[in-house]
Nucleic acid binder design. Structure first.
Lengths: 236, 236
DNA sequence: GGTCAATAGTTGTATATACAAGCTTGCTTG
DNA sequence: CAAGCAAGCTTGTATATACAACTATTGACC
């Protein structure tokens, strides 16, 4: 029996992450200062600092000399990869953006999707489908499959201020996701939705998140014109 | 006149980066230990450590308790984004990989490419084109445009152990790159090269690197079957 | 009431130290 | 010669301390 020693700074990181993930510390809220954490966990300031420092580098926190440490916003966290937030980009082009909810139902999953959602083939999954428009031109069809275990949690939400799709889109901040990008020819139904000919190539992005397992997103972008942009960062 | 104070750990980072970028410290080579940097720069161990630590988090170095710190390999650096290194993936599928150099010539650039390469439209650029095969099936056409200013440097290389295309592929480790992914229908020439029908959709990835500006890569992948995979990482 | 300065609190940088944990090397010992 | 142990190096964790730089608040003064 080997006792795995857990580093103190790692315990503090876990603590802070749990607070953020559970929503107890919302975006922009102030995080305990280095001195407060020092007292609370009976560690030296450098140890407390290390926890805050690393979480800042991971994009969960934002620090400002003189003012304090704060929970980062979603936007600043998802600097690398984002299928969905196309609204900003469209507005930057000076165009109007709006979305239309198409489906919100229960469907039987096929074999591949079953594996991705930790289900058995034929099981029911929650399905949400939204069409995104740029100036009344449909540009992206987004489909989302959700493990029904998460739907219970979903139904407990108060939807007066948030749409169902928005809730399902709001993965936890601690998102580790894998994306698969593929060029496809869409089927008839999708072509009609996106108002394109059947020979037009489309970009399909499949996204699996790990922190909130059981959610798979599928985005189909019309092309050409719609590009999936990625930036990697390496500066200091 | 304000004097900008430069942190000591930052100076050490710059020093190490310069050594790696210039090739003086190749992949896998050992980097000075914390104690050596402590003496060399007359700083405390914690300051030297911070430089190594941050460069490790940025993926330039790899550290191993007990053995030392080493320059990371390309592979471990490009954990996020890589157009080109499909060979490994093909081998993992148990298939054979090989590549064929098609072109290696000078071409006039169009307006768009001129901007990307900091040239004027009609200027000459260096052009390299390589076809990648999986079990004798062409799966990816890769085209590379290079600013002629870099070609001088290119010609000074010793090509006994490295092919021209490999050299042009070996961007500096400090790569900040932007990728644009798009679904397209390839033109006749490319369809012939990739041995696909003209109605088959293709995935086009355009990559611009910033650390070695003046290189633009264009990869065209046949589809379906070829996916462009991305992973984001957030673990501790 | 408005302006400015002092102050307290915050993060940023840097040092010196100590011990733990893992790897490498070389020497001892059987 | 081989096995194994010990020494010495490396990085990892943690503490205590000091000062710098920046911010927001407070309070005094005009």
């Amino acid at each position: 029996m080997t006792q795995v020693k857990i580093a103190k700074y790692s315990v503090i990181k876990q603590y802070i992450c749990q607070k953020i993930e559970s929503g107890q510390w919302p975006e922009h809220s102030k995080v305990p200062s280095e001195n407060e954490l020092t007292e609370q966990f009976s560690v030296s300031r450098m140890t407390a600092r290390r926890a805050l420092q690393e979480l800042t580098e991971q994009g969960l926190l934002v620090r400002s000399q003189g003012s304090g440490t704060f929970v980062a916003t979603f936007k600043s966290q998802s600097s690398l990869l984002e299928i969905r937030n196309i609204a900003d980009e469209i507005h930057e082009r000076g165009h109007e953006y709006h979305a239309q909810q198409l489906d919100l139902k229960s469907v039987e999953v096929n074999e591949e999707m079953a594996i991705l959602l930790s289900l058995k083939a034929g099981d029911k999954a929650f399905f949400s489908s939204v069409l995104h428009f740029e100036n009344d031109t449909p540009i992206q069809l987004e489909q989302r499959f959700v493990n029904p275990k998460l739907v219970a949690e979903y139904l407990q939400q108060d939807f007066t201020e948030i749409t169902p799709h928005e809730y399902l889109s709001s993965e936890a901040p601690l998102t580790e996701a894998t994306h698969e990008v593929e060029a496809i020819l869409a089927n008839v139904d999708i072509c009609n939705l996106l108002n394109i000919t059947e020979s037009a190539p489309c970009l399909q992005v499949k996204r699996r998140t790990w922190s909130r397992q059981g959610v798979v997103s599928l985005a189909i972008l019309t092309s050409p014109g719609n590009k999936y942009r990625l930036g990697s960062h390496l500066v200091f």
